[in-house]
Design a protein around this nucleic acid. Structure first.
Length: 332
DNA sequence: CACCAGGACGGCG
DNA sequence: CGCCGTCATGGT
């Protein structure tokens, strides 16, 4: 037990719902880049609510008298399901303490330090690892809206129905039945079709070994993940963080790479941009066991900066040609 | 139309 | 090891 596993004080739990901690931000947590199974939709009175699937439960996150609450829309809320939801939302971790420590580590970087306040309601969900694995194989060279669509189509075609209009993500065995041509033509996974077939068949065949692997040290689990088809360094880190909840994992994608250029020591003009290995080392040194949370904050901050500028019709905020030559964009 | 996206893979020097 | 072209698909 470390300093970040102290149970936080939670609002009183209603009998038929889970109370989410004060300050919880469903928009950045459920509709950001870590899960692809939630959609925001206003209710009859215009208030924003969030519908999603977690495991084999259909959920509704809605505003309550004090903050947000999560209701199970598909099943009665038994004590077992309540415990499962507490685990899913990671309620036994003190995010206030983690955030405070992260704020201190980012204090030298004013722009991040300021934007970090907007991420105060971000939590790292504890998602089922097989779904996470498949989702982030699909995420490679892809965009968030299309990833969400693909995941939902796959669930509808191969997963168990939950209630009227929701579907659980398929088991490895169920997904292993899918033909590559079906995944490509009907689910839109593109060239990732054979990765997904091989992946599902292998996990189904090695299911017991993978349940054991979940208890192994991060370095070993990382190595096993990267040996899977379609799983490279970045996807492996995402599965470690979001599927196995290893907070020392630090996924480096285009957004995080751009953000970390601000944190790494300034380079001489013309010097090559840092390799991912160097970025990872810098992240481990600066963030340590908070690397995963730091990464998700940096990701959401960098991406929100871009969408704000796009919405304002401003020029692109990142000049990729300049970045390739080693120059940091002035607007970043 | 070109370019990009939560990259991975195979081939090459 | 590092680099580089390629890989579907859909949105700007």
């Amino acid at each position: 037990m470390d300093a970040f596993t102290i149970p936080p004080a939670s609002p009183p739990a209603p009998p038929d719902a889970i109370a989410l901690p004060a300050g919880f931000d469903p928009s950045v947590t459920l509709c950001g880049g870590q899960t692809f199974r939630w959609t925001a939709c206003p209710d009859a009175s215009g208030r924003m609510t969030y519908q999603g699937v977690a495991g084999d439960l259909a959920l509704l996150v809605a505003p309550a008298a004090t903050g947000w609450q999560a209701r199970v829309a598909s099943h009665p809320l038994t004590p077992e399901r309540r415990a499962w939801l507490r685990h899913y939302f990671d309620l036994d971790r003190d995010y206030a303490a983690a955030r405070q420590a992260l704020q201190a580590r980012l204090a030298p970087f004013a722009r991040f330090s300021n934007d970090l306040a907007r991420m105060s309601g971000l939590r790292i969900l504890r998602q089922p690892w097989f779904e996470t694995l498949v989702a982030f194989v699909i995420s490679a060279n892809n965009r968030l809206p299309r990833i969400r669509r693909i995941i939902n189509v796959i669930s509808r075609k191969f997963g168990q129905p939950i209630g009227a209009e929701s579907y659980a993500f398929p088991s490895p065995e169920a997904l292993a039945e899918a033909a590559p041509a079906t995944l490509r033509a009907e689910c839109g996974v593109g060239y990732r079709d054979r990765y997904l077939c091989q992946l599902a068949q292998r996990i189904a065949r090695e299911r017991r070994a993978w349940e054991q692997a979940a208890t192994r040290p991060t370095a070993e689990l990382r190595q096993r993940l990267q040996a899977l088809p379609g799983v490279g360094p970045k996807v492996a880190e995402c599965v470690l963080l979001f599927g196995f909840h290893r907070w020392e994992a630090f996924p480096i994608d285009v957004w995080v790479r751009r953000a970390m250029l601000e944190i790494l020591p300034a380079r001489a003009p013309g010097e090559r941009p840092p390799a991912d290995r160097q970025i990872a080392a810098a992240a481990a040194a600066r963030f340590g066991p908070l690397a995963g949370l730091a990464q998700q904050c940096l990701f959401e901050i960098a991406r929100s900066r871009a969408t704000i500028r796009v919405a304002q019709g401003d020029a692109p905020e990142y000049d990729n040609a300049a970045l390739a030559q080693g120059a940091v964009s002035q607007k970043l």
